[in-house]
Write a protein that binds this DNA or RNA. Structure first.
Lengths: 362, 362
DNA sequence: GCACTTTACTAAAACGCTTAAGTGCTGTTA
DNA sequence: TAACAGCACTTAAGCGTTTTAGTAAAGTGC
């Protein structure tokens, strides 16, 4: 890169000490080695005057630590369209850099090689892994966890040694669907996001079914549609739903992104929201409060998600098991104006765009 | 991490060759060293049988190459709320991994240390840098470019040696504003995104001014508002605009994100879009086509943006100056339903300044 | 004042790879 | 047949750190 590379050797020479001393001064944490204050100052001065910056590769090789963490996403498409992810990424970025870690992003593109990111582990390019929404069949993940490689997964991951952050997708979907039921809806469609083998999507579907079961409503498969991650797919799935059935009064959407697509579809078909059909989403992505109608949804704090994941992972990398090892973030219902009682009874219920109105704790 | 680390030494022993031979076999590009096919097979077999994966730190130290590229964002807030960025990130992710590079993300959080990412360069943690929307006053960037460190900036970067991808913000804003003018609007408000010293926001503002000038319309500062990056700020700025003036018939929004906020504000004030006020955004983020009304905007291919930036950067890292070194991506106007001709009024026929305010209420 | 700990350092061995320079070969050419 | 070139390797010198083991000098206990 730059012509005259400054190494520890240069600093040592300038300060009149050995490179070991420079190293000890720079890694102050190493208390086992006493350094005279006067020497320390001399070294620090030399560092400043020469503009020395430690070389990452040398440090990496000698210490075995890369000072890098990876954020693994289950799908590149998901990253491209879902506004929930950038919030996680943004706070993860903050936590990492504040703690001196670099942040690698790895979005899986090739579904036939879902664990290609493992190379980063085997190459020793990273010190830890935060895997968003892993599929349960990834045996490699358990191998890593069992080998004490720092990994953060979801809190429901079926390995007692695992550490995780997240929220209960099942419970959140239950909350959303229960709310629709409490408003008087009985014919509630379900618009899933992501393929059926996508664990979070499946959990949300499970929550939907559970809510219906609690209210003694049978799940009607003609009211269940599977979108993928995009707005387009939400639009398409909602259109299909409207063609298949004309008697549902509400839609539970697996996330806000497909909900936005669905709203557009309903709008184009002349359906008025919430007068004719109510819709509730999930995630409370940034635009949700600014739609017309503003979207009723389940709020999850994406920034907190990223922050906690980052902090847990860093603690794991430093050798401390985070306490508690599994964190379920609270989710809360935010009632805005995309939901109301079904057509038979008319009632207006709307919340503000910013506050989101009524909160129902978890 | 894993207990029994396999090194080149192990592979060499197993194949009955020296570690240099293993290295030459693995880095097939190095044609300068001839290897007998039979030996090559033996080495490859040993690699496979032992499950050898090269160690990133060793390779990095010896070669001076980190095999990592960094994507630098000017603001963490921008990342958090702007849906345009994930599209760039997603395709950048793809290009990087296909070419054997890791992708680091660095969003600047602390505006007082805007060049903190430079540490990654000086530490030699990265082989190249893609800086999205850098501020022109970052002298460090020119220092890097002059020192032949691989950097991709915007195509308008004022350094003849610089390589860049992007699109003309000025021209795109011009396109958008010209369209409003061609529809008959004369009183056009401008809702900038980002602070005034944010280069892209300033360029878009410039394009707006230019379009007005071409049509002999004076820029009226009471019709110019500065939001930041978020939907909220767009909402607030549009509200202020409505309070300050009641005679504008269109809004040019600096990006779709603030446009979404503005639409919500107009909606809440009882303004109907596009009947009372037209609005045009910029970027064509994924939800824009699914809003009600669907947003007229300037389309930019975010995925192509990321892909080209990635490819150019990789070519630079490999020592080849990309041809052409500066790419302006096309932008095109996408007309949806948030724009129309201004409300018909007698004074509209006269042209010039309007005396009568338009009916904005109901 | 002798053995001892403590203090403040240094020497040098890793860490795992790349790569320039060298080493025997066999085959070719003058 | 000597000189040389090409082939298929190996040797070994780094790359820039960290860290263990060691050492000289000063301090402490009795």
């Amino acid at each position: 890169m730059r012509a005259g590379k400054i190494t520890m050797q240069d600093v040592a020479r300038k300060a009149g000490v050995s490179i070991a001393t420079v190293s000890f001064v720079l890694n102050k944490k190493s208390v086992q080695m006493a350094i005279a204050p006067e020497t320390r100052e001399r070294v620090l001065l030399a560092v400043k005057e020469l503009g020395y910056v430690p070389n990452a590769a040398g440090r990496h090789l000698a210490s075995g630590k890369s000072h890098a963490l990876a954020f693994v996403l289950p799908s590149a498409v998901h990253l491209r369209v879902d506004a929930f992810i950038p919030q996680i990424l943004s706070s993860l970025n903050e936590v990492c850099h504040q703690n001196g870690f670099n942040l690698l992003v790895y979005a899986i593109e090739d579904p036939s090689r879902p664990d290609a990111y493992m190379d980063m582990v085997h190459e020793n390019s990273i010190d830890g892994l935060f895997i968003l929404n892993p599929r349960e069949d990834e045996e490699q993940i358990n191998a890593l966890i069992d080998a004490d490689f720092p990994v953060i997964v979801g809190p429901g991951w079926p390995n007692p040694k695992a550490c995780g952050v997240g929220f209960s997708n099942r419970h959140a979907a239950l909350q959303a669907t229960e709310y629709l039921i409490s408003e008087g809806h009985r014919r509630i469609a379900c618009l899933n996001y992501g393929p059926e083998n996508y664990l979070t999507a499946a959990s949300r579907y499970k929550g939907y079914c559970e809510a219906l079961a609690q209210a003694d409503i049978a799940v009607d498969k003609t009211l269940v549609a599977w979108a993928d991650f995009s707005h387009e797919s939400g639009y398409r799935a909602a259109s299909e739903l409207l063609e298949r059935a004309d008697d549902f009064t509400a839609i539970f959407a697996g996330n806000d992104t497909v909900a936005i697509g669905a709203i557009a579809a309903l709008h184009d078909k002349g359906v008025e929201i919430p007068r004719d059909i109510s819709i509730v989403g999930m995630d409370d992505i940034p635009p949700s409060g600014f739609l017309s109608p503003a979207l009723t949804t389940i709020h999850v704090d994406g920034a907190e998600y990223g922050r906690q994941a980052g902090e847990m992972l860093i603690s794991l990398v430093k050798g401390t098991r985070p306490q508690p090892p599994r964190v379920y973030l609270p989710t809360r219902l935010v009632i805005r104006s995309s939901t109301a009682a079904p057509p038979v009874r008319s009632s207006a219920l709307a919340g503000g765009r910013f506050s989101g109105g009524i909160c129902q704790g978890k």
